[in-house]
Design a protein around this nucleic acid. Structure first.
Lengths: 167, 167
DNA sequence: GCCAGACTATTAACATGTTAAGTAATATTG
DNA sequence: CAATATTACTTAACATGTTAATAGTCTGGC
């Protein structure tokens, strides 16, 4: 059933939605990681924050948000929680009091090192199931897609039904 | 800085996280669609529901959740909102009172048909920026990944730190 | 017909996604 | 230097993600 589709251009089949395809693939991957995240008592986003801080040391809040693909309001709440549970530490930047520097705390480091082998085992399973070369190629493709989309020219404006000029 | 990494296997670089790579790519795509979703006053998830119902007609709640890649508690709230605003209609299934059938309402159909051309324009821009063949290949790859991961054998258990047998 | 067990949808509780508004510190301009 | 704009982060409000618990409903065995 595809009712009411006679007036305009034929509508794209729902299965050909790029956001949906990326979401479905991501869910399939996350299904492998969620059980152990749950066992260790951290959410996916909290893990991303700990993971980034473990690699990068002390980082500003804004930079951390970009690293973790989080919006700053979300990160703000996450850091409040992680600080309260002693997994990270915050301090104002000496040079600019607006900025906040975040670092992983010993308890956070310990948690991360306890879960890391479990996470790596899942990665090995995924690469075995999908193929190591194919996995590497997918990383490349996804990065290329990101680069192709982030250039602002060749992007037609999203037409606003309210404030639209007369075409 | 990559401190405290001497004891075990070397930890994967944070940039080689498959969930992160899929998320970043998806965000890059969604950045193209979010403005018009906002203009039409629907969220991404509400749009997915309308889109699925437009294609499939009347669908059970559980099947709709799978179609839209939503968990049933989320869908339950979304449907409550969409029903209150007159975009969808619900009725109990005649044969099984446990099940609920959902269908798009005239107002929902109208909204969808108004936004569809805008959405299609963004799809054309994406395929132009990334390449039509390459986009098609990506759909294939993502579907293959999903199929590769959903088979349950060859998946090592996520070790639970509480109830772990002595190996 | 009755009941234990399985199934479907919803609600609850906590965490995050998203947009807008607010607050404090810094940079800029006249 | 004072008024203004900009920047970095936070808070607020609403919607969704995630897991667990709940409330009806159905099914099969008795």
């Amino acid at each position: 059933m595809n009712g009411g589709n006679d007036a305009g251009a034929p509508m794209r089949d729902f299965s050909r939605s790029l956001p949906m395809a990326l979401l479905r693939a991501r869910e399939a991957v996350m299904d492998r990681f969620r059980p152990s995240l749950r066992d260790f008592g951290v959410t996916e986003q909290q893990w991303r924050v700990l993971r980034a801080l473990y690699d990068r040391g002390e980082v500003e809040t804004g930079a951390l948000a970009r690293l973790c693909c989080l919006l700053t309001p979300s990160l703000s709440r996450i850091l409040k929680h992680l600080e309260a549970t002693g997994l990270v530490a915050r301090r104002p930047a000496p040079s600019d009091q607006r900025r906040t520097l975040v670092a992983i705390a010993p308890a956070g480091r310990a948690l991360l090192e306890r879960r890391a082998p479990c996470s790596e085992a899942q990665y090995r399973a995924i690469e075995e199931a999908f193929g190591k070369e194919r996995t590497a190629a997918l990383y490349e493709t996804l990065e290329d897609l990101r680069n192709a989309l982030q250039n602002p020219e060749s992007r037609p404006p999203n037409r606003d039904p309210e404030s639209r000029p007369e075409s």
